[in-house]
Amino acid sequence: MKKYQLDLPVADNRMISGNATLLTLTHAEPLPDMAAGQFAELLVPSAKVLLRRPVSIHSINRQNNTVEFLIQIVGGGTKALAELEKGDTVNVVLPLGNGFSYRTVHVAKPLLIGGGVGVAPLLFLGQELAGNGIRPTFLFGGRSESFLLRLDEFRKYGDVFRTTEDGSAGEKGFVTNHSLLLDSDSFDRIYACGPTPMLKAVAKWAKEHETACEVSLEHKMACGIGACLCCVEDTADQGNVCVCKDGPVFPIERLKWQI
């Protein structure tokens, strides 16, 4: 897929929880083709931040030519992005990475699992699946209710199930403890994004229940386009590969995780 470097104006940027912002950028022309699971590298408008920050494509509106990013503030780069205002312009490089397999693999009953801000790419995936006439099931986990983001948006595309570590919403525990997973025949493929311990737990479950599973990794990146080899993950078939180019989405059997 051809990559673009674009200056996109900010249409909206608003905090949707204590530490997450929803950034909407617009384009005067139709946005390039992008697949769910792909990401953008955003140039951060701060002299204290040198490298771009990788952020998943959260959703796309082809009528208005807008693209949304769901960004959790964890440090200087994400903080500066959260401070962008309507009328500012952001330089973005996109679309990057491979995306989830739904464009090439037949899937009928997908389960989309997200942890924390890892839900970000799953909204776009839900939109894309819905466009193919497939209604996904979403399963989201968070520390507590306030960490579960954008639920009403997700409900437009599929049923949403929740777990929280403190039991403040949905079932208490981790995503892999949810009663939805008691019947392993309900789903033919899992797409997951979130913190690595969660991804490993999901991968373990999928392996044990022989369910196809893809996980999206969030390695630290410098170039985002496969040029610097900073973002590698060790794979069973090809050794170290770039998460930014060969990923960020990997079928779990390619990973050398001890699960």
């Binding site: 490298l51 390695h219 973002c231 590698v232 993950e233 170290n240």
Partner: peptide, 23 residues
């Protein structure tokens, strides 16, 4: 050469460190 294990990169003030190791 497989290069060094991840993590191989750290951003520093106005710079970065890399430890790719000639992969």
């Amino acid at each position: 050469r497989e290069g060094n294990p991840y993590p191989r990169m750290a951003e520093t003030p106005s710079g970065m460190l890399n430890a790719v190791g000639l992969q």
